[in-house]
Structure formats: structure tokens, C-alpha cells
């Protein structure tokens, strides 16, 4: 049998200790990890089940206006938390655009951040994959790769990070709280995921034993609540990963964009923050010309990694769309088809 130990620690310290051994992996709801184990992609020697850890299942609204989300909060619970939706509507919309209702009911915040790529060759154990087997080569590079990365990829790996949730989070300067062998530390979510370079097997900056305990959104992120959207193009209307997605948040004062936040999903090994594009928007009027320029800047460094040049064009158009929708104002309710271009109430740029 693919034998492994299963432990269910009751304190964070025990969890960290248990996971600090070679071959140990945290198990949250398992919606990703168990599939990987069954497919022969991951072979953990020890599963450290974190779902019973105390205190990680809360959403706390702190006095300074920030919010702290425990790593075990379920995706669905967060997306339906009324205060959270009011303050961070694009994050809720992104969550609800992901997976299916059943999966969202199970999936945890920590698991969502740490989910692995959907690169089919990564999942296909007989294929060569540098992520699974450093140095083995990358079968995606010359393979069926129309959905692979167009930004930040390397010859070693062209996979994308699949999370929807992470895209608005990274735009809004989310911070990850990590408990490790040497205590607690914080990193910007933007720094959590790494680009592949020559070491695609190192996907995040977590070290062995590091446990994500919480995610924080700073008070400043609330300032975008009136103009925040997440838009995701998929190959069917629901229950599909993003071909490309974008989260746009604007702070508009007197008809001028004061501050813009922009991030892309499905384009790189990490949720892709487009800072230069954000800069270009600051101080301009929220109009199509400015949005197009921002889109151009956001994708300026993009290059196809295979049969996927269309994603560069598509990404620019999604950026324009997300910005257009954000500038029109956050809808009073999350649309019935969250993140979908087909959510109603949208007037297109002709």
C-alpha cells in the first residue's frame, strides 16, 4: 500500500513538529491532495491533518479595519460572510466562481492558496515533469499546452497557478501568516508563490513544516469596495478553471482613478500582480483608452509558451473588461453567475 502515517494534532505547535519531518504534508480537506495521491503524483509519508486545529476556523474583523481569516475557514463560508462580501466583494466573487458548490463547501482557505497546478502532465504520472521529478524535463513544453503560462514561465516549467481566490487577494495586498519551526512570520501573498526559474519544484517560499495559519487583508483594501470585480473566462459557464481571469479594484474620486489594483489569473505560476499597469491608471479618468493602455502594459512582457498566444490577447481584453466593470461600480449583489462574463447588468464597450 501507499503507506503513510496519519496524524491529527490538536495544537499548531504539534502540527508544525509533525510536519517538519521529511515526507510529511499537511492535509486540509483533501480536495486537491487526495486526488494527487490517488493519481500517484504525490507520495507523502505522513499526512498531518490540520482540520481539528483550534482557532483557525474564524473570520475576525479587527479594530484597525483589517480582517483576519483563519486557514481552515471554508471557501463557501467566507464567500457567504455578509460583512466580508461588503468589504471585499471581488474576493467573494472570485471564490464563488471557483470549482463547484460541493467543493467550495469543503475547500479551505489554506488549501486554496496551496493548491497545485492543473497542468495535465503534472497529473499524468508517466509524463516527464520537472515539478514532480526535478531534472526530468517538461512534457508540456512541446505538448498540448494551449492553457499554459504566458508570463513568468521558464524553459523548466510553463504551468499556471489555478486559484481564483488568490487573484483578487494578491491585488489587495493580502498577507499570509505562517507558523514554522522558528516561530511565526508574515509574508505578502504576492511573495508566497514563486516563479519556476530552474526550480519549478519549489512552488512557494514555505519551508518544510511551515503552516499557513491565517490570511489577512489590510484595512486599506476596503477602500476599493465600491469598484471591485473579478472576471474569469472559462470553457463552460461554470465548474471550470480559468482560461484567464482578472481582478480589478479602483479607488475613484471626483471622476478620477486615485488608485488601481490589478491582478491576473491563469497566466503564470503565481497570481500575477500587474503593478506597472496599476501605476498607469493612477490619476487618469476611468475610460477605455486608459484601460487599454493598462492592459497593454500588464501583458507587455508576455510571450507564448506554446500553442497559447491567444491568451495574451485574451488577457488584455479581460483586463479591459475587469477595469470597465469595476469602474461601473460593484453590483449590489454578487451576480448569479459569479465572475462570468455572462453575469447580467453589463454594458459592453462597443
Amino acid at each position: 500500500m501507499m503507506n503513510f502515517d496519519y496524524v491529527r494534532p490538536l495544537t499548531v505547535a504539534e502540527a508544525v513538529a509533525a510536519a517538519s519531518e521529511k515526507g510529511a504534508t499537511y492535509l486540509a480537506s483533501g480536495t486537491n491532495l487526495l486526488d494527487l495521491m490517488k493519481g500517484g503524483v504525490c507520495h507523502p509519508r505522513r499526512l498531518v491533518d490540520v482540520t481539528r486545529l483550534p482557532g483557525l476556523g474564524r473570520v475576525e474583523y479587527l479594530a484597525d479595519g483589517s480582517v483576519r481569516i483563519g486557514a481552515l475557514v471554508r471557501n463557501a463560508d467566507l464567500a457567504h460572510d455578509a460583512e466580508f462580501v461588503r468589504a471585499f466583494p471581488s474576493v467573494a466573487e472570485a471564490l464563488l466562481s471557483g470549482a463547484s458548490a460541493q467543493l467550495r463547501n469543503a475547500a479551505t482557505v489554506g488549501g486554496n492558496l496551496m493548491q497545485r497546478t492543473r497542468c495535465a502532465y503534472f497529473y499524468d504520472a508517466p509524463s516527464a515533469c520537472n515539478k514532480r521529478w526535478p531534472g526530468a524535463g517538461c512534457d508540456a513544453r512541446q505538448g498540448e499546452n494551449r492553457l499554459h503560462a504566458v508570463l513568468g514561465w521558464s524553459e523548466a516549467c510553463i504551468a499556471t497557478h489555478p486559484s481564483d481566490f488568490c487573484v483578487p487577494l494578491v491585488a489587495l495586498d493580502a498577507v499570509v501568516e505562517i507558523e514554522g519551526k522558528s516561530g511565526r512570520r508574515e509574508v505578502a501573498l504576492e511573495a508566497l508563490h514563486r516563479l519556476p526559474g530552474d526550480t519549478p519544484e519549489r512552488e512557494t517560499l514555505l519551508d518544510r513544516g511551515d503552516l499557513i495559519v491565517a490570511l489577512r487583508l489590510p484595512a486599506e483594501a476596503r477602500a476599493f469596495a465600491a469598484h471591485a470585480r473579478y472576471i474569469k473566462v472559462r470553457e463552460r459557464t461554470s465548474y471550470a478553471f480559468a482560461v484567464v481571469s482578472a481582478a480589478a479594484s479602483l479607488r475613484i474620486e471626483q471622476g478620477t482613478i486615485r488608485e488601481a489594483r490589478l491582478a491576473l489569473g491563469g497566466v503564470a505560476a503565481k497570481p500575477w500582480r500587474a503593478r506597472d499597469a496599476e501605476q498607469s491608471l493612477a490619476g487618469v479618468a476611468p475610460d477605455v483608452a486608459g484601460f487599454r493602455e493598462a492592459a497593454r502594459i500588464a501583458l507587455a512582457d508576455a510571450k507564448p509558451s506554446g500553442d497559447n498566444a491567444f491568451k495574451i490577447e485574451l488577457a488584455q481584453r479581460i483586463v479591459v473588461r475587469a477595469l470597465t466593470l469595476a469602474s461601473a461600480g460593484t453590483p449590489t449583489r454578487i451576480p448569479a453567475l459569479p465572475g462570468s462574463p455572462f453575469s447580467s447588468g453589463v454594458r459592453h464597450v462597443a
Binding site: A120, D124, S127, D139, E235, R236
Partner: peptide, 16 residues
């Protein structure tokens, strides 16, 4: 609009 078995053109394995 939707249905397609994606086959690796080298290995002949179905990827989805």
C-alpha cells in the same frame, strides 16, 4: 462547444 478528449500527440495518452 465543449466536448473534446485531449490526446498527447507524442504519447497517445489522453490528458483529460
Amino acid at each position: 462547444l465543449h466536448e473534446e478528449a485531449v490526446m498527447d500527440h507524442r504519447s497517445g495518452r489522453i490528458l483529460n
